Amino acid sequence: MPVSTISVKSNSPPAPSPESETLEFKWGQKRGKGGKKRDIQFYQSFTLRGVDYSLFDNVYVKNDFAEPRIGKIIKIWETPTLERKIKVQWFFRPIEVSKCLTWIKIYFNELFFACGDGDGLATIHPLESIAGKCNIVCISKDSRNPQLSDKVTWSAAFVFYRYFDVGQRKIVEEVDDKSIGIEVKNIFNKLG
């Protein structure tokens, strides 16, 4: 009897094999020094495993669960002991905030960007915990958000235009710089 196979499109990056874990790494553009002793070097960008990353890129982050977490890089730095770190502000999948979605229609590939004040907004991780870039398109009609073509939007792994307030535990449709902790322009689509 012939065996048939089914191809399934995955929104998750492939898991690196142990043989491919030889870490290719290079720092990019420096931003400045900080910390109590001004001994922490902040960066704008870096290259990891042959992929260029910059502040405000959307990434998959490895964790202990089957699916990697999805977030936006909001800080990049190296400590005096040469530890490479990133701070990631999270996107939430609908299943992660399902108790807050009563009577809300969602897109099949929609995410909610973390905002507000409280646990779950952002966390710090070793830079090496990045599993890859994540293609997310902001479909907000906000005049500050560059609108992308339908082709680009339909080819995105995920879309978002709403936010999950981690403090109030509710979905919101509008935010400002203070409620998300970064400039709003950094969550919208980039052109070019």
Score class of each variant (00 low, 15 high):
54 S>V: 01
107 Y>L: 09
83 E>I: 11
108 F>V: 09
64 D>V: 12
157 A>C: 13
63 N>M: 01
118 G>P: 08
68 P>H: 02
143 S>T: 14
116 G>H: 03
26 K>N: 09
52 D>G: 10
128 E>M: 12
100 C>V: 12
107 Y>P: 05
158 F>V: 07
58 N>L: 03
4 S>P: 07
4 S>Q: 08
141 K>F: 05
157 A>Q: 14
114 A>K: 02
90 W>A: 09
189 N>G: 12
83 E>S: 11
147 Q>H: 12
67 E>Y: 06
50 G>K: 02
62 K>R: 15
129 S>F: 05
116 G>M: 04
13 P>S: 14
120 G>Y: 01
173 E>T: 15
131 A>M: 15
51 V>W: 02
81 T>F: 05
61 V>A: 12
69 R>C: 10
133 K>T: 07
159 V>H: 00
104 I>L: 14
48 L>E: 01
83 E>L: 12
71 G>Y: 08
69 R>P: 07
8 V>K: 09
113 F>S: 07
101 L>C: 08
177 D>N: 02
154 W>S: 15
139 I>R: 03
7 S>A: 07
109 N>L: 07
53 Y>N: 10
161 Y>I: 01
171 I>A: 10
117 D>C: 12
17 S>K: 15
178 K>G: 00
60 Y>C: 11
119 D>Q: 14
57 D>T: 06
149 S>Q: 04
13 P>K: 13
80 P>I: 02
45 S>N: 03
162 R>E: 14
148 L>F: 06
19 E>T: 13
56 F>H: 08
168 Q>N: 15
161 Y>R: 12
93 R>F: 01
125 H>S: 11
54 S>P: 01
185 K>E: 15
49 R>D: 07
17 S>A: 13
12 S>W: 06
186 N>C: 11
181 G>M: 00
129 S>G: 11
70 I>S: 05
26 K>D: 11
3 V>K: 14
186 N>P: 09
98 S>L: 03
179 S>P: 01
125 H>R: 09
128 E>D: 13
132 G>Q: 07
47 T>V: 07
2 P>T: 11
89 Q>E: 00
178 K>V: 01
42 F>V: 02
89 Q>A: 02
52 D>P: 08
125 H>P: 06
51 V>G: 10
105 K>W: 03
14 P>D: 09
17 S>R: 12
89 Q>V: 01
86 I>P: 11
67 E>Q: 14
183 E>V: 07
175 V>W: 00
37 K>H: 14
92 F>P: 12
151 K>N: 10
163 Y>T: 04
43 Y>I: 01
50 G>Y: 07
186 N>W: 06
167 G>M: 06
83 E>V: 14
137 V>Q: 03
8 V>C: 03
131 A>N: 15
115 C>Q: 00
6 I>S: 09
124 I>N: 09
79 T>H: 03
184 V>S: 02
149 S>T: 14
76 I>L: 06
72 K>Q: 13
41 Q>V: 10
113 F>A: 05
124 I>K: 10
58 N>M: 04
20 S>M: 13
15 A>M: 13
1 M>I: 11
42 F>D: 02
44 Q>M: 05
153 T>N: 10
148 L>C: 10
20 S>R: 11
52 D>H: 14
123 T>G: 14
179 S>A: 04
88 V>L: 03
